[in-house]
Amino acid sequence: MRIAQLSHLADPALCPRLVIKVGSALLVGKDGQPRRAWLTALVAEIAAARAAGQQVIVVSSGAIALGARKLGLAKGGRGSLADAQASASVGQIALAGLWAELLAGHGITAAQILLTLEDLEDRRRYLNVTATLGRLLAAGAVPVINENDSVATQEIRFGDNDRLAARVGQAAAAQGVLLLSDIDGLYDRDPRQAGAVRIPVVQGVTAEIHAMATGGSSSGLGSGGMTSKLQAAEIAEMAGMALAIIDGQPGSPIATAFNATRGTLFLPRRRHTARKAWLGGRLRMRGTVSVDAGAAAALARGSSLLAAGVIAISGDFARGDAVAVIGPDGQTLARGLAEYDAAEAARLLGHPSSAHEAILGYAPRSALIHRDQMVLL
């Protein structure tokens, strides 16, 4: 039996490992103070889940909002990158202390992990995160994770904790990701419009599903919106995880949503190998490789990407870097690790494999991107 409905995320037999993401607007009030009563109720739910045999990982926003108040910075600490970094430096201490205190009230040890985008994009560092999470969970701790906003720049950051939660779930081999939001799921249009209908279950994030999303966060405190949640759902479904969006505003929000079956559940489509799931969930590509219709059809059949079917190269990538494969219609077909750097790939563009040695002056590799180092989207 697999996860098929919202309440299954609370079943340790179906979801032995769950990631819970908490946004800034839920954790911090408009006065910049933590919402202790609300958080106390949520921690009680986490403790109950653990007592039932479920391992829990928390991805928690709130450091910038908490720090901005202590430093007296305007715009919730998001007026500039320097303000955000300074606020995060101060607020992360308070945030970690808050989680540690409330979890300790249930006899649970909290562990803090701060991550940047590169920690999960680089394969070796990703495996280190995986190992650390596994050891903490085995030891009975609850990892509390946030983006390391004190050092992350615009170019090397997730920018929202929705996608971070999905990537953490992937690294931890979790079965489910639960996004506590200020809305109770995905609607077929802006939920402020009359007649908007909530979508209870989504089987695959399609272009039509993306069209339903609105981009911004309504609270002004967070950095995510429905678009980032759909991107998180895409990462989750590629890793074989279920992901749900529920309204986090009520007291005891998880039980409230599950008992009423109110939220949106994104079902997993397939579970790739760990390496391909990591590759498919990457957020930064170093370049693009555009292919013709023949190459696109060959990829769909499970073939490697040969240079003969490539019509354009862009980006300054090296061998082993992640690149996106773009089809004739401009859509991304796959992601993979390049077997050649950009300059070599450009020289091979459109040429059959039999001509590669003469062009490069050395024995060529079997493909521009090998199928074992590529994931179809």
Rank of each mutant, 00 (worst) to 15 (best):
215 G>W: 12
354 S>W: 04
20 I>C: 15
176 G>H: 11
295 A>V: 02
233 A>Y: 11
77 G>D: 00
241 M>L: 15
73 L>V: 10
70 K>F: 08
176 G>C: 12
262 R>S: 13
219 S>A: 08
293 A>D: 14
26 L>I: 09
345 A>Q: 02
355 A>F: 06
92 Q>R: 11
125 R>V: 02
108 I>G: 13
200 P>V: 02
56 V>I: 15
272 H>N: 13
310 V>K: 07
140 G>M: 09
89 S>F: 04
108 I>T: 09
95 L>W: 12
320 G>W: 09
345 A>F: 05
187 Y>V: 13
16 P>W: 13
49 A>R: 15
78 R>N: 14
104 A>C: 12
160 D>Q: 13
36 R>M: 14
97 G>Q: 05
26 L>Y: 07
178 L>M: 14
314 S>M: 06
148 N>Q: 10
317 F>W: 13
33 Q>R: 14
220 G>H: 11
21 K>V: 03
49 A>F: 06
164 L>Y: 11
333 L>C: 12
147 E>R: 06
328 P>E: 01
278 W>F: 07
18 L>A: 10
101 E>V: 00
313 I>E: 06
173 A>H: 15
44 A>D: 15
24 S>T: 15
271 R>Y: 04
94 A>H: 07
262 R>Q: 15
36 R>C: 07
23 G>R: 03
347 R>H: 03
28 V>Y: 10
142 V>Q: 08
185 G>C: 04
359 I>E: 00
111 A>E: 07
153 T>W: 03
362 Y>E: 02
259 N>R: 10
304 S>G: 07
27 L>T: 10
219 S>C: 07
227 T>E: 06
273 T>M: 01
62 G>E: 01
212 M>A: 09
346 A>S: 11
4 A>N: 14
158 F>H: 10
109 T>P: 10
174 A>I: 12
313 I>Y: 11
209 I>S: 01
335 R>Q: 14
151 V>I: 15
329 D>E: 09
58 V>T: 05
352 P>F: 00
106 H>M: 03
39 L>N: 08
322 A>H: 03
56 V>S: 06
118 E>K: 10
188 D>V: 10
349 L>P: 05
206 T>C: 04
116 T>N: 14
114 L>E: 04
292 D>P: 12
245 I>T: 05
339 E>L: 08
342 A>P: 00
240 G>S: 03
110 A>T: 12
245 I>Y: 01
92 Q>I: 10
296 A>Y: 01
367 A>R: 07
147 E>K: 04
82 A>D: 14
300 A>G: 14
114 L>G: 06
176 G>R: 13
314 S>F: 05
123 R>G: 09
47 A>W: 02
146 N>F: 03
277 A>D: 06
271 R>P: 08
344 E>V: 06
163 R>D: 01
126 Y>G: 08
277 A>R: 06
107 G>T: 11
71 L>Y: 08
352 P>G: 00
262 R>T: 05
246 I>Y: 02
141 A>G: 05
246 I>N: 03
87 S>P: 05
131 A>Y: 13
238 M>D: 06
336 G>F: 08
